[in-house]
Amino acid sequence: MNDHSQLNARTLPIVFPMILIFGFYVIVNGHVSPGGGFQGGAILASVFIAKYLGNPIKTLNLYKVQNIEKVLLLFLFVLMTGFVTLSIHMILHGSLIFYIILANILIGLKVACGFTIIFYRFVFYESR
């Protein structure tokens, strides 16, 4: 995969936006249709993995991605404890839907970061 083909390099960027839109669709509509944070996050992560197939990037600061993931996890934790103890859904116009969508988006982005870290850690370091 180091000698990537022109075919991959030219066609994959056309597909990226569609995969991104599909991933966000799955995340945002998680409460009414099949899918949710985890599945949509995996779809989002497959964008970065497909990017490696088309155009291998050698330098990606994994620590930055890891920090983003930690911050997202913190927000998720705060949101859920707030839901349980302070009943945030009462503040958000008394509706559960905002809470569910927000939690789904946070979970999705966190899962995307996690899968990206796993993949690139594997690609960069685990060699002979």
């Binding site: 799955v26 099949p34 899918g35 949710g36 985890f38 599945q39 995996a42 497959s46 993995i49 899968f115």
Partner: peptide, 15 residues
């Protein structure tokens, strides 16, 4: 079980 189906298709078949 469409939820599990999506997860299986994405993770098992792609990643």
């Amino acid at each position: 079980a469409p939820d599990v189906a999506i997860a299986e298709a994405v993770i098992g078949s792609t990643i």
